[in-house]
Design a protein around this nucleic acid. Sequence first.
DNA 1: GACTAATTAGGACGACTGTATTATTTTATT
DNA 2: AATAAAATAATACAGTCGTCCTAATTAGTC
Lengths: 190, 190
Amino acid sequence: MGHKGEALRQRIVASADQLFYRQGYENTSFSDIAEDVGISRGNFYYHFKSKDEILCAVIDTRLTGIERMLDEWTSQYTDPMQRIVKHIDILTSHQDDIISHGCPVGSLCTELAKSHHSMLQDATKMFSVQRDWLTVQLKELGLGKEAKQVAMHLLARAQGIATISNAFDDKSFLRQEVKRLKQWLDERVY
Amino acid sequence: MGHKGEALRQRIVASADQLFYRQGYENTSFSDIAEDVGISRGNFYYHFKSKDEILCAVIDTRLTGIERMLDEWTSQYTDPMQRIVKHIDILTSHQDDIISHGCPVGSLCTELAKSHHSMLQDATKMFSVQRDWLTVQLKELGLGKEAKQVAMHLLARAQGIATISNAFDDKSFLRQEVKRLKQWLDERVY
DNA sequence: GACTAATTAGGACGACTGTATTATTTTATT
DNA sequence: AATAAAATAATACAGTCGTCCTAATTAGTC
């Protein structure tokens, strides 16, 4: 029984993840991924029987990555405010990628929504996980029933920043808006 | 000299406009457009020699549509605040389309950025026109050098609302965020 | 009505796509 | 070392894509 294939499988998912982010899902072919990994298309098909299947694997990988990131922040910081600021700082820490390719979650959801792809709901879970985590932090800060709404608001703010700074290829706008968002958070949540 | 072809040309652009919005640019083929218009692919190619060419025509059409809309509001309302509110209200007046297909400008820019398409800058002009118009209104409201930044901020807010409400298929979130945005405008610009 | 230009239709071309099947090589187990 | 399983490669297939070419039809002009 060869467990060697598992390593290659992960390499394939990692390549697909990057390519989907940089070129989009539909615009990335089996050949693109196979070439990037350095294997043949036939071998590729041994590990993933369809394109939907690898998209599913990519979404799962991204999802667990997001969850691991959030868990890390939860254990690393005790102040909910610090945690939320850390979340906002994703925009600046990934600014170059966002300028070039937008938000990996938002752009994928936008694409899947247009192609009426059945996996849109799975992709949206990448948002839901963040929303729920932010909601917990906001409730710890004293917010009540409106915590979830504010969490959604934070997601939307980040999305807008990513989309616009990507379209305009404008890094200074991204930084300026991040500052504005933190400022709003300070005023809104005391 | 037959000027009859001009009418068909506009029908083609109108169909392409809708299809690009609902399915995305790359995911819409010549056959899709031709079938929607009710003509043959050969005839189609007579009016547009390449796919880039029709994309250019669609962007131009959308651009003049946006400019006409803004001009109308400029002449229809004297209060800059009313004008800006009218702009924000695009989100609610087009809410069903936005829920289903996102923002026509933002989603196109996102797609063109991913495919590294040369026409991304032309598409971004659909944003610039709105930004400049909003800047004028904000300056009339008394804002100075920061007017342009606030205008960009408004665009980003609208983009975030469109992207998130599209991904979540959540109309109530859209309406709620529009209300929040107007509220922010009232507090920010006295 | 004849003639020319504008317009439409139809089909052919090579390239690429996702999918599928088969053959070959490598790995693991006995 | 022999054998079975896993993994990799190579290729074929039907479909679609953007593009291009050619024939047929329509419309406008003298």
